[in-house]
């Protein structure tokens, strides 16, 4: 409930009118108008910012995808209009099916593991024990490190000849695995690194969600003789469902965008073995000596489409949750 200085039918703040007599400025239309101007003045920088630095780049991106921008035309600004040809080329290309499949696997497997591990840790940290706060804080570190730092550390750990992972596995008699350089393992490797990166985010959000479940529920369940496993499935999991949905969808939206990790570890290779849509778009535009912005922009726009679908589902769920 906000008192409404802007309301037209009630100039001079109905709800708090008792103080008005003491004001130097006479309440009334002038005051209302000045508040409305102030509201616009305070929001104006943001509106300008959104138009210039969000809408315009996005418009340029659509423009790129509908024209045939050769590097020459890119600088001179006189490309041919080709309609949806770029989209058709991208979708009919051999790489598209693989990139779509990799995007699906990368995203779903990543968020599946991040969520499961994050939830298990959140439940574990819910039992307050000595040092639990400090340890939970330390779990945030991977999330705060620059992605390039984490990605390069993982590259070295997964190095075929000198990596610690292969050396560790070797102790159990497992032979050398070419994590980053073989087509069978490249996607798995970047997924492992990405799961590691996403656990802190899931842990923090799910832990916050657990705080909202009243303790009496668990006490009552314990009195009825429910064990920890039953308490989790009967109380924690069902009551956490709205938070879970939000976590998973945000994870989906974030994971669709991932470029840094994959690019630093494998550049999407070998071949296209770990190429997702985001990586494909990045590579076409910036990854080779020959920038090819038009198909890159077309892929990027397809990616926005997928992200927005997930985004609207998220907003719909959150709105429904707020209403209930």
């Amino acid at each position: 409930m906000r008192s409404t200085p802007m309301s037209r039918t009630a100039p001079g703040r109905v709800g708090v009118a008792s103080d008005d007599t003491s004001l130097a400025t006479p309440p009334g239309r002038r005051r209302v108008r000045s508040t409305r101007w102030a509201a616009l003045a305070f929001i104006a920088p943001l509106v300008v910012y959104l138009v210039v630095f969000y809408a315009y780049p996005l418009y340029r991106n659509i423009d790129l995808s509908l024209h045939d921008y050769t590097p020459r035309a890119f600088v001179q600004g006189n490309p041919d209009f080709v309609g949806f040809d770029n989209f058709a080329d991208v979708i009919s290309s051999n790489a598209f099916g693989l990139a779509l499949r990799n995007t699906a696997i990368f995203t779903l497997v990543s968020i599946g593991f991040q969520y499961t591990i994050g939830l298990a840790l959140a439940v574990f940290f819910r039992n307050h024990f000595r040092l639990s706060g400090v340890l939970r804080g330390m779990f945030l570190i991977p999330w705060l490190l620059p992605l390039i730092v984490s990605a390069s550390t993982w590259s070295w750990m997964l190095n075929s000849e000198n990596g610690i992972v292969n050396s560790f596995l070797g102790a159990f008699g497992i032979g050398q695995i070419n994590w980053l350089t073989s087509p069978e393992w490249a996607l798995t490797s970047v997924i492992i690194a990405n799961i590691w990166l996403g656990i802190p985010f899931n842990l923090v959000i799910l832990y916050a969600g657990l705080q909202n479940i009243p303790d009496d529920l668990y006490e009552a369940a314990a009195l009825d003789g429910a064990n920890a496993w039953q308490q989790f499935w009967r109380i924690t999991f069902p009551l956490l469902r709205p938070v879970s949905a939000v976590t998973l969808l945000l994870g989906l939206i974030y994971t669709l965008k991932v470029v840094d990790v994959i690019w630093v570890m494998t550049t999407g290779g070998p071949g296209n073995a770990s190429t997702t849509l985001a990586i494909w778009s990045y590579r076409e535009a910036f990854g080779t000596g020959q920038p090819d912005f038009s198909p890159a922009a077309a892929i990027g726009n397809l990616l926005i489409g997928i992200a927005l679908v997930a985004g609207f589902v998220y907003l719909y769920l959150q709105r429904r949750q707020e209403r209930s």
Binding site: Y54, Y56, P57, L58, Y59, R60, N61, D63, L64, F74, I253, L256, K257, V259, A278, S281, Y282, A285, F286, F293, A296, A297, G300, N301, L303, I304, A307, L308, A310, G311
Partner: peptide, 14 residues
């Protein structure tokens, strides 16, 4: 929700 690779291309063009 907009992927930054898309924003990067738009900014580059500008």
């Amino acid at each position: 929700m907009i992927p930054s690779v898309v924003m990067a291309m738009g900014f580059y063009a500008i």
